[in-house]
Structure formats: structure tokens, C-alpha cells
Design a protein around this nucleic acid. Structure first.
Length: 506
RNA sequence: GGUCCAUUCGUCUAUCGGUUAGGACGCCAGGUUUUCAUCCUGGAAAGAGGGGUUCGACUCCCCUAUGGACUACCA
């Protein structure tokens, strides 16, 4: 069996879409599972759609996710098939275009976009193919002399593949099985354009996959309709023996309604569709990314891996290593997967729980510093240990714990109504006295003493504790009271109770 | 319109001819908790429709319906 070599081949027309991320991930998992190589090739044959920064964004995204590139753009050593940017491979493609031209497998066409557009309006369902190429302006209808003249005069042209009608083309897809298409429905696709001397996707893709010795082409389902053309090109070039195997992945669909997941869905439904934040260099608009939204890359990888694939077991949490071990194209599903953002959150929740308090505390401290709060990591770690299980994201930690760092200035009015009785202030004054007498604020100690006092006075436990919480936290939320006061300390606790007594009026 | 692909709980999915159709997210209820959350337990929830094949079909075949992709000198 030949060495597994897969490629991820995005075009740098903007930020990498989450669907593209999954394609990259599946390629990576497949390659690593089989001890193969993962290549990153940039398909920038459309000079008009090139977006600066997009390539760097792609590399950074893959890095963040832990998808390591063995060869090509972003790899430590680029590799022996350099360059890996198609715009830098012009000379290579020209050679193969000529080969097709010489073999009569392609031809030169001079029809302008305007003329083509007119034809489409004139003939419904117009297709540039065997049935129509005879009435167009091309090297099949023009004399060799005319063609040479036109080119000499600088007239722009394209090279089109010449497709013979009525041939059955079969594609062996690793996910879908055998797909058969009749060549009559294919059109004479443009392979090369003289205007920028660059091939189109189809030619460049096939030539590069051949030259780069790609063994498996794993890409989105949107490519399935053009797969027959690619197979045909392998035949035309005489490369069928080394033609890669194909696997067309199901699409990622909108969470609601129908259709492919798009950037607009993210904006509309409020979740990221990109791995990293992206600032559009033209509009200046920023699109949010998973990294900045507070996701761990492991969670994104885990989440994405299960959108269209499953291990066949009931395991839900997978490390990258486990994914590599268990991944197989046979277990990739055939139908599109609706993107369920809620499940994505759950994955992050699982991952945040599995990390150490110290690790989370280090991340949280960055947020605290932004808030102007300086606190020892030991204390932050303790706080994290109390509130970690309540959150899905590191970014939610502040909301759940701000009262540890900043005393409440306002008190939740609903809770006042419910928990602040006429006798509460006098009881809290007593509580202050009780606490003042405690020297060690360890939770077990304060809890015992306070509860003893409540029992002795025959007060209502809930009544006292809820008012106590309102005074210290300001809201009816948070971990155990005695854990809270152990962290904020005796002086601060007493101060807060006194402030509440003086502030809350009923 | 044409070509191709697909179709199991709301969602992601298991099932590869014989199961009370399983799990997870979400939802609902109960429990735990001095609060909120977490957590635990339980519950509701599915084979698009119609024909075949078969002793027996979610599973195989056909038709219909529905959804999707593609249909550029974009990838």
C-alpha cells in the first residue's frame, strides 16, 4: 500500500470556515491514523478573490487546534514539492495545459464573458459542451492560423477541457461507494485563463495532487459534482494508476432551517463560525472566533469530530490521540449534520472540568488583570476550585465570582423582598458579634460556630443564611457561604454585613 | 430546470434482516443544596410515505416526497 499523503487545500479568500476546519481535522486524523503526511497547499489561483492575511489566519487556526502540518505552508520544512502556493506554480501548470492541448484533449476558446452571458440568455440551460462548442469561437471552429493570430494580437482566451459525451464515469468514493455520472452532463470546464496565466481549480488541483503524490482526497461534498471531471483529467493525463482515492464529506448545515452553515448564521444566532477572530481588511468588520469566545481547542476538535463521524461506541469525549486511533472514513456519515451550538458548549464544560484549578486560574488571572484586579494565584486557584464546575467558559468565571474581589454595592431587590425581614438587621448585628469572636476563619470552624449560635437562639437557619448571603454577595447565588467568607476574610466579611445593614431599608 | 447526494427522537448519532430501536446535547420532573448553579435519578421524544423481496424489514430493491450540493474565465 502506498504511503498515505493527504492535503488540506483552502483558498485564501477569507477566514477559514468551521466546516473547513472539520475537513482539515478529518484529513489530519486520517493521515495520522495511517502514519501518513498532512500537506497544506494554498489554492490562490483566483487573483481577484485573494484576501491578505487569510493564509496566515489559516495557519494560525490549524496551529491553535493542534492540527500539525507535515509539509507545505506552515510546516517546519516546506518539503520537496515546493512551492505550495499555486500562484507560485504558474510555469508548472502551463506545461500540463500544453500537454492536453497537444493531445487534442483540450482546446482554446475566445468567447468573452459577455458573449457567454448572451448565449446563456439566448439558450436556456446553455452548457459549453460537445453539443454547443461547434457554434462558439474556439480552436475547434477557427483555423489554426486564426487562432495564432488572435493570440498574437493579445486577445484573451481560456483553455477548455474537451469532454467526449456519452461516457460513463465512475467514482469510487470511500464514504458513498460508487457514483456513476454520464459525461454528457459535464461541460467543457475552463482549465486555464490567459488573463492571469493561471489555471482554474480543477486543473491545478489535479496536477498538484498528482505531483505531490496525494493518496487520498478528503474534501467537502460540494466537490462531488466535479469529481467526474477530475477523474477524467487523471485519465487524460494518463495518471489513473496513481489517482488518489476520494472521500466526500457531508456538509455542516444551519442549526435551524435549511442550507449550508454560513457566516450569517453565526451573526444571526450568536455563535462563532470561525476558529479565530477575524477582522475583515476591507470592511473592518470583526467576526468572532471560537478561541476568543473562550473555547479550548480540544473542545472544538472534539465537538467537530463528532459532527459527521462517530466511533461506534458510546464514548463522547475524545482526545486528539484517541480520535487518531479510532477515526475511520467508513464511519463518516453520508448526510449533512446540523450545527448544534448547545452541544459545543457542553463539550467546553466537560473540558474545563477536566483541567486543574491552577491551569484555569492562570487563564482567569488574565481576565482579572484586565479588570484591574491583582490577586495572588493561590487565592485565584481557591476561588476557581469553588466556581469552576458552574461554568462552561473561563470567560464566565468573572460573572460567577466577582463578589470575591469586589464588595457588592447593590442588593438584589427581589431577594430583599423575600429574605430581608424586620428582624434581620438585629440578627445580623448579632452575627457580626459572633464572627468577631472567631479567630480562625476556616469554613468548618465558622460553620460550626454560626450554626451553634443559630440553634441556641432558635433562629431560622434559612432566614439567617440567606440574609447573610445577600449581605456578602449581593445576590442569591454562589458557593457555600462559609467557603466564601474563608476566602474574603474576617474583616471584609464583617464590613460587608455592616454595610448591608446600613444600606438595605425595607 | 438539469445532474448528483442524502433521509432513525428537536439536534448529533448507534443499529450493518430477528432489539422493549441504544447513547449524548437540549427539554421536563424529582432529589441534593441555606441561595444560584453544578451534580444525581427519572421522563417525554424517532425509522418521510407507498410498494415490493423475505418466515421476518429501520436495515435490501423500486417509486414518490422532502432536504442538500453543484450547475462561473470562484474555489
Amino acid at each position: 500500500m502506498r504511503k498515505v499523503r493527504v492535503r488540506f487545500a483552502p483558498s485564501p479568500t477569507g477566514p477559514l470556515h468551521i466546516g473547513g476546519v472539520r475537513t482539515a481535522l478529518y484529513n489530519y486524523l486520517f493521515a495520522k491514523k495511517h502514519g501518513g503526511d498532512m500537506l497544506l497547499r494554498i489554492e490562490d489561483t483566483d487573483s481577484a478573490r485573494f484576501v491578505p492575511g487569510a493564509e496566515e489566519y489559516i495557519v494560525e487556526s490549524l496551529n491553535w487546534l493542534g492540527i500539525h502540518i507535515d509539509e507545505g505552508i506552515g510546516a517546519r520544512n516546506e518539503g520537496k514539492h515546493a512551492p505550495y502556493r499555486q500562484s507560485e506554480r504558474k510555469a508548472i501548470y502551463r506545461k500540463y495545459v500544453d500537454k492536453l492541448l497537444d493531445g487534442g484533449l483540450a482546446y482554446i476558446a475566445f468567447d468573452t464573458p459577455i458573449e457567454l452571458e448572451a448565449k446563456r440568455n439566448e439558450i436556456s440551460n446553455f452548457q459549453y459542451d460537445a453539443s454547443t462548442r461547434g457554434m462558439m469561437t474556439n480552436s475547434l471552429t477557427l483555423s489554426a492560423e486564426d487562432v495564432a493570430n488572435k493570440i498574437k494580437c493579445g486577445e484573451q482566451y481560456v483553455v477548455r477541457v474537451k469532454i467526449e459525451p456519452n461516457q460513463e464515469i465512475e467514482i469510487q468514493d470511500l464514504i458513498r461507494g460508487e457514483v456513476i455520472v454520464n459525461s454528457t452532463v459535464l461541460d467543457d470546464k475552463v482549465l486555464f485563463k490567459s488573463s492571469d496565466e493561471l489555471p482554474t481549480y480543477h486543473l491545478a488541483n489535479v496536477v498538484d495532487d498528482y505531483l505531490m503524490e496525494i493518496s487520498h482526497v478528503i474534501r467537502g461534498e460540494e466537490w462531488l459534482p466535479s469529481a467526474p471531471l477530475h477523474v477524467l483529467l487523471y485519465r487524460y493525463f494518463g495518471w489513473t494508476e496513481v489517482m488518489p482515492e476520494f472521500a466526500h464529506l457531508p456538509l455542516l448545515l444551519k442549526p435551524d432551517g435549511n442550507g449550508k452553515l454560513s457566516k450569517r448564521d453565526g451573526d444571526r444566532l450568536g455563535f462563532p463560525v470561525f476558529p479565530l477572530n477575524w477582522k475583515d481588511p476591507k470592511t473592518g468588520e470583526t467576526s468572532s472566533g471560537y478561541r476568543e469566545a473562550g473555547y479550548f481547542p480540544e473542545a472544538v476538535v472534539n465537538f467537530l469530530s463528532l459532527l459527521g463521524w462517530n466511533s461506534g461506541t458510546e464514548q463522547e469525549i475524545f482526545s486528539m490521540q484517541e480520535l487518531i486511533e479510532q477515526f475511520s472514513l467508513e464511519r463518516v456519515s453520508k448526510s449533512g449534520a446540523k450545527f448544534d451550538y448547545e452541544k459545543g458548549k457542553w463539550f467546553n464544560h466537560k473540558y474545563i472540568q477536566s483541567k486543574s484549578d491552577l491551569e484555569i486560574a492562570n487563564l482567569f488571572q488574565i481576565i482579572l488583570i484586565e479588570k484591574g484586579i491583582k490577586e495572588h494565584i493561590e487565592k485565584v486557584t481557591k476561588i476557581v476550585s469553588l466556581i469552576k464546575e458552574r461554568v462552561n467558559f473561563v470567560t464566565e468565571l468573572w460573572n460567577q465570582s466577582s463578589f470575591f474581589f469586589v464588595a457588592p454595592t447593590e442588593y438584589d431587590s427581589k431577594t430583599i423582598q423575600k429574605r430581608w425581614k424586620a428582624e434581620t438587621p438585629t440578627q445580623l448585628i448579632e452575627l457580626v458579634e459572633v464572627l468577631k469572636a472567631v479567630s480562625d476563619f476556616a469554613p468548618e470552624i465558622t460553620e460550626e460556630i454560626v450554626k451553634e449560635w443559630i440553634a441556641a437562639k432558635e433562629y431560622n437557619l434559612g432566614g439567617i443564611m440567606n440574609a447573610f448571603r445577600l449581605s456578602v454577595v449581593g445576590e442569591p447565588k454562589g458557593p457555600h457561604m462559609f467557603d466564601i467568607i474563608a476566602i474574603i476574610g474576617k474583616d471584609e466579611t464583617i464590613e460587608r454585613i455592616e454595610r448591608a445593614i446600613n444600606t438595605i431599608k425595607i
